[in-house]
């Protein structure tokens, strides 16, 4: 029983990170209808950004304030990168066929990975323990630590903020309008380019925060760390219904739990296959995902 609870907590913490990254995919897909493959690399850059910010705050280690500074630094850095990618690579292709945008996204993702290897080297860096790990609940077979609670709590808070932003602000309304029909929205006077850039900024900032939470849990940062997380988060987004915020959150958590439980109860060798298997099954059974609704494609 305790093992089950332990697995649920572990899966939930892992799933919260997936959910934060998945939100980025889902937001971009919502407004532009394409998979931003480079999102995983923005997540990776966020982790490196966090390392550098923490490096500057040499004396602040261990305090809550430095955690906040590192998180905001990383989020700001990611926002910058996200905006730059959107401006340089995606905006010129706004009216290009979707296939071209997709290929560009793959290209940008590979480019950032390889630039990362060139600049940071392939050897992993260590994410500093901005706040040290402490067990909050500790019995023989069940351990819950402060980082896990922090990860789950922060993710939940960010998702609530996002929900408020999208549902209850003018900006959110504009985002929804763009997502619904980009041309009509532009006729209504909504500055399309600015809204899209804003969407990228939010998605990237979430990735930056996820990267810091991830770095605190797994303090190993390397230029290819985004690849696997990215794929899993994407699967989570599709599972929940791409374009839906609730879907991304639920999908991420389901993904995290499913992985932990499969490894524990079934087999550890097919963990990565699980993500893809889940993806294929959901796409065949219910391509719109759990919460998604897909517009019929027009002729």
């Amino acid at each position: 029983m305790q093992a089950l609870i332990q697995n649920l907590v572990n899966g939930l913490a892992q799933g919260s990170v997936y959910a934060l990254v998945a939100l980025g995919y889902t937001m971009v897909y919502g407004v532009l209808q394409f998979i931003n493959f480079a999102h995983a690399e923005i997540f990776m850059l966020g982790a490196f950004g966090g390392i550098f910010v923490a490096g500057w705050l040499t004396n602040g280690e261990g305090s809550f304030l430095s955690l906040v500074l590192v998180t905001f630094g990383s989020m700001a850095f990611c926002t910058g990168v996200g905006l730059a990618v959107e401006r340089i690579a995606y905006r010129p292709l706004r009216h290009a066929p979707r296939l071209n945008v997709l290929i560009t996204a793959i290209g940008v993702s590979l480019l950032l990975q390889n630039l990362g290897i060139l600049i940071f080297g392939a050897d992993p860096r260590v994410f500093p323990a901005v706040i040290p790990t402490q067990a909050l609940f500790d019995s023989q077979n069940l351990v819950i630590n402060n980082i896990q609670v922090l990860v789950i709590g922060t993710s939940a808070a960010l998702m609530l903020c996002l929900h408020w932003l999208v549902r209850h602000t003018k900006l959110g309304m504009a985002m929804r309008a763009v997502s619904y029909d980009i041309e009509t929205a532009s006729l209504m006077g909504i500055p399309i380019d600015r809204i899209i850039a804003f969407t990228f900024a939010i998605g990237s900032a979430l990735a930056g925060c996820a990267a810091v939470l991830y770095g605190l849990t797994y303090p190993k940062v390397d230029p290819l760390m985004g690849v696997i997380i990215g794929i899993k988060a994407f699967v989570a987004a599709v599972f929940g219904g791409i374009g839906s915020f609730v879907g991304a959150a639920v999908g991420g958590i389901v993904m995290g739990l499913a992985e932990t439980l499969v490894v524990y109860y079934v087999s550890s060798s097919f963990r990565d296959a699980l993500a893809f298997g889940l993806l294929i099954v959901i796409l065949l059974v219910k391509p719109t995902g759990l919460f998604g609704s897909m517009a019929k494609e027009k002729v």
Binding site: A3, Q6, N7, N10, G11, Q14, N141, Y214, T217, Y218, K220, L224, M225, V227, I228, E259, T260, L261, V263, Y264, S268, S269, R271, D272
Partner: peptide, 20 residues
């Protein structure tokens, strides 16, 4: 006798099983 794949970051499920 359990396994992981290089590139993974979370091993808690395997380790929970091993610990027991």
């Amino acid at each position: 006798d359990l396994s992981y794949s290089s590139g993974d970051a979370d091993f808690k499920a395997q380790l929970t099983a091993i610990k027991l």
